[in-house]
Design a protein around this nucleic acid. Sequence first.
DNA 1: CGCGAGATTGACTCGGGTCAATAGTAGTGG
DNA 2: CCACTACTATTGACCCGAGTCAATCTCGCG
Lengths: 262, 262
Amino acid sequence: MPTLQTIETRPVASGNDEPRLARSEQQLKCRLWSSLVELCELLQIAAHAMPLEPQLFQHLQYRPGQQVCIDGAAFDALYVVNAGFLKTVSVDEWGGEQVLGFPMKGDILGMDGICNRRYASKAVALSCCEVIRVPFKTLTTLMKAHPCFEEAMFEILGQELTRKQSAIGALTCLGAAARVARFLLLLAERFAKIGYSSKRYVLQMTREEIASYLGIKHETVSRAISAFHDVGLITVDRRLVTIHDVDALRMLRRLSPSHKLT
Amino acid sequence: MPTLQTIETRPVASGNDEPRLARSEQQLKCRLWSSLVELCELLQIAAHAMPLEPQLFQHLQYRPGQQVCIDGAAFDALYVVNAGFLKTVSVDEWGGEQVLGFPMKGDILGMDGICNRRYASKAVALSCCEVIRVPFKTLTTLMKAHPCFEEAMFEILGQELTRKQSAIGALTCLGAAARVARFLLLLAERFAKIGYSSKRYVLQMTREEIASYLGIKHETVSRAISAFHDVGLITVDRRLVTIHDVDALRMLRRLSPSHKLT
DNA sequence: CGCGAGATTGACTCGGGTCAATAGTAGTGG
DNA sequence: CCACTACTATTGACCCGAGTCAATCTCGCG
């Protein structure tokens, strides 16, 4: 069963598990449409003086393993994650898969389709999740009508660029352990931003997926995590991570395999 | 004059070098302004039915070593490279430098400033070069006035995203030799696109800079290049590269340190 | 209860980083 | 014009981090 708290697990706390919606095979129907204002606050866009467009946006729900964006499909909309966790994966020409990211609440799916009008990666649900569909046409219309919206879009694309840049920086100059430390800290920050605990959270992905994302092997991820655990920086129980010493992790984060750069 | 051929060197040919402008400390003044239409064709934007804005854009010239964008400075304009070669470099909080790219004719500098209104990297001229300044304010005004322009901007940002994504892919799953092969091929393509030979070109950057860009050490770059040379795929003389077997290089490009991905 | 996916851990190997020596080239100044 | 120096590049010897291969363990599920 899709265990709704796989999605909702706040700090993790509530020990209870997967009860009620076990039976429902199809998507649940909690809320089907969102207004523009709701969308803006999800995206953390200053909706100040946001025009009261009658525009409504459709909600879509998925269960673990289902695909939200399909690699290669025609691009016609962006999707904003409203709840749940996903991974985005690119499939190269020889079938190799590479995890690109782990979108969660407030993140946007499908931006890589903007340039060729075709999605360049697929998004797969890791837990039950819900996304809001934003047709690209609607988006451009809104941007023309409301300058503040256009600005926000540039802001978002710019952020994405910056984020990828920093990922490149990490890949080029950090060793395996440092990458894992960085990953754990970044996850913590993102959880905090959407109201979860930043000290204690559940990894929604396998070690294998983390490894692919970080450009290392899953055994190496395991070893790094175990090492952090052994020296008391964190506690790990299966997928549950508890961070004890944020500062020490931050130090570790800058460790390279003996400082590569100049 | 800044040796126009340092800029114009077609296949490389003209062996002559750094003579005459040694004295002129300040920039030359060959052409100071470009029209919107000229800018569009430089960017390869379909300027079809492009409105005849009276708008003119300032040209700026730099000599090797000079900075075009300054890391941390307030963002107020993008710069389009009109001639010459540069490198973009990010400086992390501990002083380490990382080469992010090697912009050339038609490329855009400064996009990483969009999100925080502050440049996140610096651009340094590798040869004499000339860029066209496009104030961001002007850009947004133009976009509002002409939808096709807005579309073009999204196209450009999207492309940049895709490019960075592919760079990440390379970093995570290619070995050192494959990265170098990929680099040489990508350079060849880019040279071809701006009218140079794709078979024979001059590397405008040091091995060290290539290494930083690829996330490996300069000795490794040297070894990879020597290896390609030794088996006859390419010929290398100092900075001059001649590619003999594009297809073989393309094969090499997919070599990982024993296929990492799943 | 057995099965298979995920995770952990150990032993071995190797790609690429480190250190060091050599050399070609360019710029400087006498 | 030629030494002198600094920078860039190449090459070799050595070593370590992380990949590879494999065994074991746990958990969840049929």
